[in-house]
Nucleic acid binder design. Structure first.
Length: 391
DNA sequence: AAATGGAACAACCGCAAGAGA
DNA sequence: TTCTCTTGCGGTTGTTCCATT
C-alpha cells in the first residue's frame, strides 16, 4: 500500500484556485470526464497535482453541490447523525444531499461544535458535560441502553453507506466496461438533479452512447452484496471477539430488484413507507436474548445481533421503541437548537416542559431528553435521506 | 481610517484501503 | 503474494473576510 507522491513535485501550484483554473478543470471534465486524476492536470493544462484537482472538483466545482447557509433541518440532521456516527463525515454526507463531507465537517467545526460546547453539551458524546454526576443512578444506564441501540443503528447506517459506496464503485466499473472515462454519478450524491448538463454533454461528446444521467443514473444497478460487517468496536459495544457480551453485527445485504434497477427508487420509497409503518425494534423474547434478527426489505438486509440484549435495552419508557412516528415529538436536538443563542435558528417549539437541555437540569429531564434525543435520531436514520436517490 | 482578533471556509496533508498488474 | 497506483477520508492548516476596538 504505497502512497502516491502527489503534491510534492516541484513546479506544481498550490493554494487557492483561480477562476481560470476552475474554468480549465470544468471544461476538461465536461468534455472528457475526469478519468485518471493523476493524468488530468497535464491533459487539462493545469499546474496542479491530480489530488488537488480532484478535491477542487468534488468539494467545489461539481454541479450537484448545494452551497450557502445550512438550513435548520440540515443542522438537525448533522447533529443527530454525528451523535450516531461521530466524525464519519462521508457517511453523514450521504444523508445530506448536495452537501460535501468537507463542507459538513467545516460547518460542524466552526458552528455546531462550538454551539454544543457553549451549551454544556460534549460535542463528542452529545451528552451534558456533567454526565458523570448521573453515573451512579439509573439514568446513565438508560442512556447507555439507548446508546446501545444507537450503536446498533449506527452499524446499520454505516452498512447503508457502504452499499452506496459499492454502488458508486460498480457504476465506475460499468463505465470502464463501456470504455468511457466519464465519471458515473453516484446515487449517494444525488447527482441526477445536478448532473444532466455535464453528463449529457460528456456522453454526447465522447460518443460512447452511454445514456445521459437521467437515464443511467436512475438505472444504476443497485448494490447486490453480501457483506459481513464487523463494527470496529465502538465504546459501548467494544469487546473482544468471542466474548459473549460482544454484540456481533452481521449484515447480509442484497438489493431487491437489482436487475431492474430502474424501479429501485420507487420500490425503495414504498419499502421505506412500509418499513416505517411496521418497524419496531425487535421484540424481546425469552430465550433470544443473545440473538436478534432484523430485516430491512429495502435492501434485504438481514441483521443478526448477538449480544447482551436485555428487556431494558429494548425499551424506553413503558413500551418498545418505535422508530417511526416520532418526528412530531420535540427532540433533544430541537432543545439544543432552540436553546442556542443563534438567532438564525428556529425558535419554534416549546421546550419548557423539558426544562431545556443545557445539561444542568434534573435527572428526570435528562432521562426524558435522552429518550427524545435518541428517538429522534432513530427516527431520522429510519427515514429516507431527503432527496437521496438511494431511496 | 487603521490595526487586530476571531470566524469562516477552502485547500492541503497524510493515512488507509481497494484494485489491478 | 507482493507491490504500485488510485481514491477516499478525516484532521489540520492557511487564507480571506468581517466585526470590533
Amino acid at each position: 500500500m504505497g502512497r502516491s507522491p502527489c503534491c510534492d513535485k516541484v513546479g506544481l501550484k498550490k493554494g487557492p484556485w483561480t477562476p481560470e483554473e476552475d474554468q480549465k478543470l470544468l471544461a476538461y471534465i465536461e468534455e472528457h470526464g475526469h478519468g485518471s486524476w493523476r493524468a488530468l492536470p497535464a491533459k487539462a493544462g493545469l499546474q496542479r497535482c491530480g489530488k488537488s484537482c480532484r478535491l477542487r472538483w468534488t468539494n467545489y466545482l461539481r454541479p450537484d453541490i448545494k452551497r450557502g447557509k445550512f438550513s435548520l433541518q440540515e443542522e438537525q440532521t448533522i447533529i443527530q447523525l454525528h451523535a450516531l456516527l461521530g466524525n464519519r463525515w462521508s457517511a453523514i454526507a450521504t444523508h445530506l444531499s448536495k452537501r460535501t463531507d468537507n463542507e459538513i465537517k467545516n460547518y460542524w467545526n466552526t458552528h455546531l461544535k462550538k454551539r454544543l460546547a457553549k451549551m454544556g453539551i460534549d460535542p463528542v458524546t452529545h451528552k451534558p458535560k456533567n454526565d458523570a454526576l448521573l453515573s451512579s443512578d439509573g439514568q446513565s444506564k438508560s442512556a447507555a441502553n439507548l446508546s446501545h441501540m444507537a450503536q446498533w443503528e449506527s452499524a446499520r447506517l454505516e452498512a447503508e453507506a457502504r452499499l452506496v459506496r459499492e454502488s458508486k464503485l460498480r457504476s465506475h466499473s460499468y463505465q470502464h466496461q463501456l470504455g468511457s472515462t466519464v465519471p458515473m454519478p453516484a446515487r449517494s450524491l444525488d447527482v441526477p438533479n445536478g448532473w444532466p448538463g455535464v453528463w449529457s454533454k460528456s456522453t454526447e461528446g465522447n460518443g460512447t452512447g452511454v445514456p445521459a444521467a437521467t437515464g443511467i443514473g436512475s438505472d444504476l444497478e443497485s448494490p447486490t452484496s453480501t457483506l459481513t460487517y464487523s463494527e470496529n468496536a465502538p465504546p459501548i459495544m467494544a469487546a473482544g471477539v468471542g466474548d459473549n457480551s460482544v454484540p456481533m453485527i452481521e449484515f447480509v445485504g442484497s438489493t431487491s430488484g437489482s436487475s431492474e434497477a430502474g424501479i429501485v427508487k420507487e420500490e425503495g420509497e414504498q419499502d421505506w413507507k412500509r418499513f416505517k409503518n411496521s418497524t419496531h425494534l425487535p421484540e424481546y423474547k425469552e430465550g433470544m436474548e443473545n440473538s436478534v434478527s432484523f430485516t430491512s426489505s429495502l435492501h434485504d438486509i438481514s441483521v443478526s445481533v448477538e449480544g447482551t440484549w436485555t428487556p431494558e435495552s429494548l425499551r424506553t419508557g413503558g413500551g418498545h421503541v418505535h422508530f417511526g412516528n416520532i418526528m412530531g415529538e420535540e427532540g433533544f436536538t430541537n432543545l439544543l437548537l432552540n436553546n442556542s443563542d443563534d438567532q438564525s435558528l428556529s425558535d419554534a417549539g416549546d421546550d419548557s416542559d423539558n426544562g431545556g437541555a443545557s445539561g444542568s437540569g434534573g435527572s428526570h429531564d435528562y432521562y426524558e431528553d435522552n429518550k427524545n434525543y435518541w428517538s429522534s435520531i432513530l427516527n431520522l436514520v429510519n427515514s429516507p435521506p431527503s432527496d437521496s436517490p438511494l431511496f
